[in-house]
Every structure is written in C-alpha cells, then in structure tokens.
Design a protein around this nucleic acid. Structure first.
Lengths: 339, 339
DNA sequence: TTTCTTTGTGCAATCGATTGCAAAATTATT
DNA sequence: AATAATTTTGCAATCGATTGCACAAAGAAA
C-alpha cells in the first residue's frame, strides 16, 4: 500500500523556499502576491496534489460553509424536493448541506437542532415537527446570531426569515372550487392546530363556507395527525354521519388518498357521491384513479429560495437585513376527484 | 443585543484555576482525572454554557464524523428513503450526513465526490449516475483509505463494500410471472447497459425467456434512459411493431407508468391487451389504476445497512476488513397490471 | 523516616490555515 | 546616487482541543 501523506501549505512553502503565509495568500488569490509567485505556487500545489484542509481553515475563520436542514421526514416528496432545491442552490455557492429528520417528534427535533448547533453550521433551514410547541431550541440560534430560516411549517414565536405558501388562500380556493362544483355539505380533515399551515388551510375553508353562506357544521371538521390511518378513520366518521358530506377537503394528499380507498371499498363514487381534494400534489395524486384535485406547493422552489435567502444572510453577516416572509404561489390543480 | 462569547476549555480552566488539559480530559471522561475534578469541571461547563468546538477537535483528530452521500436525485423515492435509512442509523452513532446529488450527470458526480473528498468526510456512500463510465474520482478515496460504499448502482471496477439487490433474479422472477400469466411476446424496456443493475435485470429477463423456450426477439428489447419521455417513446415503438408484445417488463416504475398512460390514450386494456410490470415500487405504483406489478426494493433498509457497514469500517480503521457485497432481498409484488 | 508505587495535573507541542504588522525588495522620484 | 513610495514577502500569533511526557502529590511498603 502506497503512502499518501497529506500535503500542507508548509510542505509547499518548504519546496518553494518561501513562507507558508505566501503560499496561503497565493492560493487564495490575495492581491498582495505577485503574479509570478502566485503561478509558481499554484502550479506546485497541483503538482504535489495539495488539497486544502477545510477543517483548519474553518477553525480559523469560524465558518463551516455548511447549512443544516431539519425536516420531518426526508422520504416525503414535498420535503425531498425541497432538499433537492436547497442542495442545488447551496452547491453553486460552495455550501454543504447536512440533513437530519425529526420524524415529526419534538424531542428528536430538539436533538437534531442541538447537534447542528454544536457542529457549528452557518445557518439552519427547518420545517418544524407536528409536535413542536416550544421554541427554546431555536433561540440558541437567534442568540448566537446564526441565521435560521423556516419553510412551510414555521414557528410563529421566532422572528426569522420564512418561506411559505399562502395556505389560507389555497385552502380558500380549493374549498371554493368544491362549492362552485355544487357541493353543499363540505367537510374538512384538518391537521393539528399547532401548525399554522393547517390552521390557515382550515381558516381558508371556513372563509369560503362563510362567503357562500354555508353554515359551518362542527361535525364536518375533523382534526387529525393527517396520517393514512387517521385520515381513513376520520373519513369513515364523516361518512357515517346521518347527513354525510358531499365534498371533503382533506388536509393533505395522503388523507385524500385514504379517503379514496375508503370510497372504493365502500362503493362510493368519487366525485359523484362525494368529491375529494387533497393538498400538496404528491407524485401519486396525478396518477391515482380518479386523479386527485389538490394544491401544488412548489417544494423545489421553496428549498431553492430558502437556500438563497439564508446563504445571502450568512454572506452578509454584520449587515442588518430585516426578516422577511416570502410567500410563494401555489397552483390549484383540479382533477377528476372534484371536477 | 447581548454578547455571547464562545466559552472555551481555557475559559473553564481559568475559572477553575486548573489547566486546559485537565478540563479537556475531564470533559472526555478520561480515566486519569479524579472523580472530584471531573464533576467540578462538568458542572462548570454546563453552568457557563460551554459547547465544544467540533472543528478544533476534528482538526486535531483528523476525523469529521461525517459521511458523504451522493445520489442521482434526492427527490426520487427510492433514494430519499435510502437517505432516510442512512440518516437514521448515522444519527444513532453521532455521525452527520452531507448529501449531494449528481443529477445523473458524470461531471456533476465527479464534482460532488471531489467536494466531499475535500471536505474530508470519513466515508462516502454513493449510487452512481447513469453516465458513470470511469472511476478515477473514486480512486481518490481508495488511495487515501477512506471507505467508499456503493449501493444499488455500483462501480464494478472499484473494490469496495456494496449493498445491492439481486437484480438478475428480480428481473427473472418478474418476467417469469408474465410468462406464467400466459404472455407469449414479452418485451423489455431496459436501462443503459453501463449500469450493472439494468444489465442484470435484462439478463434475468433473457434467462426467463430462455427457460420458457421463448425465442428472444431483438425488436422487443428497447434500451433507454428510463425517463418518462423515453419510456413513452420506447413503448410506442413496441406497440407499433407488426407483432406487438402482449407483456412488457419495464425497467422501472416511471416507464411503466408512461406505458400505462400510453395505453389509456390509445385505448389498450391493461393487462388484457398488454400486461405491464415496473421495478422499484414507487409510492404511486400501488395506487395507480390499474395498480402496477413491480419489484419492491428495500430502499430504507439498504440505506440503513449502508450506513451501518461504513460506520463500522470507519470505526475500525486500521483493522483490515474484507470487502463485502451485501445482497438484500426484493419482493415481487403482483398487482392488477399483470395479474 | 525513607523509598517505591500509584494517581492526578500541567506543560508545551500539535493539527493546518489565516492575517496584522513589520521587514525586505522593487520601482519611482528628485 | 540617494531617498521616497510602493509592492512583495515573512514572522509569529491565533483559532480550540488533544495528548505524550514530565512532574507533583498522595499512599504503600520497607
């Protein structure tokens, strides 16, 4: 086995009979170094297979060129596409992306955030868990002036940048579409109120009902964890009502899908017996039968913007940049399940 | 704005009027430190809000506790679930996961690998791009004795650990199922031969034909990039043959889905006019109509095992561990598209 | 009491790159 | 040729934690 000792700037310096500082400057294109030496050094560096020790540089500069990402689950399309957007942008700026998942558990989230903090990421992009009802772990970052950016699911008590979609309006529009379609008894399977996104969707739903002068019926609102099972149960409860709904706005595509399954099993025609809509436009939504009406969230774009914003903030450390809430547009997608 | 200077072991040492080395040892539970001082130090550390500087420690120890992951695309379910598995295991061992995507481009892959190398990850887990026909960039790792582990799509010329599934057998089994079902003219939409997984699937297909004494027809084999568009075109070509196939084994679920779409548009009944099967069991495959027969690859498990294996190797640096190819089982899932 | 162990701490070098300040080398000016 | 101005380069400290070696303190044995 060949030996491959790491080359340092000192080795280069020694070879070239100049000082390490000059080597360092030459490699960093510092203007105080003459063209001649710069070339000499850079040539030698390549020749000797030098690779800079990022760790040492980071230690000195107190920057890691790394951003941490915490999402509930990596394997959900919305999040993986957001990560894809983050990674794509970060990559162009030479930033690394460390990911971790909270599994929608507060404790795990706290742990992830702590770990990223200890690893001294330059910034953190996060979409909070369904359980997150405290913000102590985020304050770590604000206190040390490390940028934190929430996307989609944000923590309302932390002042920070946010990339969101207009859940209220999206909820409103998709409910409106059900009304327009002729639905009279419209139910909603909502997510936990803890998360503003679900509250907003619900409020959009209420607003649409209100505008159409459809009285709100308590029994038509199911609050769940929006999992497949919970969705199925909630939908079953709705359909078991003496006066079951003829339109259901499901809080996400997963529950809409489970509702669809329920309908198939119980011989209910969608959309004729009951119209269904989801939220998020998962990859399966377009291809399931009947295809699922939903609201498309620009996951990739959100991630991309998030990375752009946070890296900009990181790079302008020192400058005061006011916090911003960037609202990206959603697209209402009407498919067979409600048309 | 409050100032929050970072506390170092020196600050602790100064406060406690002991040396930094003692503090360091106390914090690391070194046996040479007495219970008394250890407690004292640890108490003080918490009190002063000390957080170790991972960078400094890493610089010293030449370890980053980080593993790099390169996948073609993060937002594909198979890969995001693999990453999920990697992250879950890595997390339990205190390892960070840096991700990057090659977008199935060789150049980008080389770049990602280089970057991870420069960032001194302790190991790398990778599933190579569709274009990867060279291995120079991987040799970097072997040369410096940094563990590299391939999963699913591996580079055959690099000696290393691998986590794969038995593509040959899976291809065989799913083709066999088509034969068993009564299909006589079975086509295959294959992926690039460059990737062994596609070659294996194809060979499995050939083997099944051979065993059933069905002669292989050149025109029934389409080699494509397995994208939606290419899949659609390939399928169209197949169906335009004078003697179109009555069963098609598609190289992945995406092409199978596009084939399904084609059938819907052209009024072909699946599986009666033509039976279809995919590969991978994407989330949409179960819910599309007709539901798609496919081979389930244990993405999460593969990722989990990959992380386990590579971290084990990292932690036993110095010890010689023979390379291993771990083959995880697939599950044949027969659904409506071929039943 | 003296000598030998055992246990606990501290000194100082190290990991590799960066940077303020000073010194040297080069060029411009008189 | 001498001095001033400018450009290049080097010295040495720094970032924060780790660790081999030496030394000090405490206890055990003679």
């Amino acid at each position: 086995m060949k030996k491959h000792p790491e080359i340092t700037i000192h080795n280069l310096a020694h070879e070239l009979k100049i000082s390490a500082s000059t080597v360092s400057r030459a490699l960093n294109d510092n203007s105080r170094i003459s063209e001649k030496t710069r070339h000499l050094v850079q040539k030698k560096a390549i020749e000797m297979g030098y690779r800079p020790n990022v760790l040492a540089a980071n230690l000195r500069s107190k920057k890691t060129n790394t951003i941490g990402v915490v999402v509930p689950r990596i394997d959900r399309y919305f999040f993986s596409s957001a990560i894809s957007g983050i990674e794509d942008y970060a990559w162009t700026k030479g930033f690394n992306v460390i990911i971790s998942q909270s599994n929608d558990l507060l404790l795990k989230e706290i742990n992830c955030v702590q770990t990223l903090f200890n690893n001294r990421v330059d910034g953190i992009i996060i979409s909070i868990s369904m359980q997150t009802n405290e913000d102590k772990h985020f304050r770590l970052f604000s206190e040390k002036n490390i940028p934190i950016l929430f996307f989609d699911r944000f923590c309302p008590t932390i002042e920070s940048d946010r990339i969101v979609v207009d859940d209220f309006n999206s909820g409103y529009k998709i409910t409106y579409q059900l009304i327009e379609r002729g639905c009279k008894r419209i139910a909603h399977i909502a997510g936990p109120e803890l998360l503003n996104i679900y509250k907003d969707r619900k409020n959009g739903y209420l607003r649409a009902l209100n505008e159409a002068k459809i009285p709100f019926t308590e029994a038509y609102l199911e609050v769940t964890g929006l999992t497949k099972d919970e969705g199925m149960q909630a939908f079953a409860r709705l359909m078991a009502l003496p006066n079951p709904p003829d339109g259901v706005f499901c809080g996400n595509d997963t529950t809409a899908l489970s509702a669809l399954e329920y309908c198939q099993k119980n011989n209910l025609k969608v959309p004729n017996d009951v119209a269904l809509t989801g939220f998020s436009d998962e990859p399966f939504s377009a291809v399931v039968t009947p295809s699922l009406s939903t609201v498309k969230q620009p996951g990739y774009q959100m991630g991309f913007q998030a990375a752009k914003r946070i890296i900009h903030r990181i790079e302008s450390a020192g400058t005061i940049i006011p916090f911003e809430q960037i609202v990206l547009p959603t697209t209402l997608i009407i498919r067979d399940s409600s048309s």
